[in-house]
Design a binder for these strands. Structure first.
Lengths: 167, 167
DNA sequence: GTCTACTGCTTCGAATTCGAAGTGCGCCGT
DNA sequence: ACGGCGCACTTCGAATTCGAAGCAGTAGAC
């Protein structure tokens, strides 16, 4: 079919706007809590959380950047900050001399633990309070396919993430 | 006061993470499209869209800031840029000498119209493609109460905030 | 009337962000 | 093995962001 006239029906538009607004508000609230509790920005928290979640406590820079949806240069900056604060360590990867492995320190884990309850409190009370258990399940069920779709559709001009081998 | 054990069940956690990731990815994609097509940042686009949507084509600064979830000082900056670009006009309100009324110009409307189709295209193909019509309805139905809840729960105020510094 | 508290916006300084360019390593074909 | 291409990360400069402080204008108490 030819491209339909480019427009979103009112329901789509509402969903889109609400999505943006909800996440913006949530992010602001969370950011404030993190700043107060642990003097962390949201990105820094995300990085620590990701590292703390890993079985090894470490990740490559690039994977971190992708995971958090962040620019590489920005990650370098934030990793530097976190390292200076003693929350992570950086070391060259053993197997690939190009890449850097970032590892969370005990101090990092401690701070994460200190900040986490408040974080969860905010998310819980802002995002989940008005939703029933089934609502949350439904939301998760809706977001998952969108997430997968987005992951598999890389930004238009960026290089497709091919490990090796050709198409 | 023994706060309830602060934790999110796995479903909630997944929904929360996906929400953040989806909007981050969407935002990046949209931002890129807007930059390419009309040399606009996302905030600038949001401001123009909001003004263009208004019956009068204008809004007070504060309402704009609240609408897009943005700091006041940031809005002053962006409004200045938009004005310099001839996309909006600023004039003191007749009834309240303190407040400034921002109005979209014809050039602003033109740029908005130029940029909108691509914007919709991106949102459509990234966010809505993997969702059926009913899915979207369900999503909208879930987000609306959350949005209302957040709006009615103003950011916890007046905590002595520490200086920005260090990690 | 006028004093005081509050609101709306701007200015200011510092921190964060990104993209482009730069450096060095690893992979592949010849 | 050599050479070119591509990847991982960093550096650099410019633009954007925020909060705190500052400057009017407004509203309510008395």
């Amino acid at each position: 079919m030819p491209d339909s006239p480019p427009s979103l029906d009112p329901v789509q538009l509402g969903a889109y706007f609400d999505l943006i607004e909800v996440t913006s508000l949530l992010r602001h609230a969370v950011e404030q809590q993190l700043r107060e509790t642990g003097d962390l920005s949201y990105v820094q928290f995300q990085l620590l959380a990701r590292l703390g979640d890993s079985p090894t406590g470490s990740h490559r820079m690039t994977d971190l950047a992708d995971g958090v949806v962040y620019s590489r240069s920005g990650l370098t900056y934030q990793a530097g900050l976190l390292e200076k604060a003693g929350l992570v360590m950086r070391a060259p990867s053993p197997d690939d001399e190009r890449s850097i492995t970032v590892t969370i320190t005990d101090a990092g884990r401690a701070l994460l633990a200190k900040v986490l309850p408040g974080h969860i409190e905010v998310v819980s009370s802002m995002l989940f309070e008005p939703l029933s258990r089934d609502d949350v399940k439904a939301l998760a069920g809706l977001l998952a396919p969108v997430r997968d779709h987005m992951r598999s559709t890389p930004p238009r001009s960026a290089a497709p993430r091919r490990r090796r081998g050709r198409a």
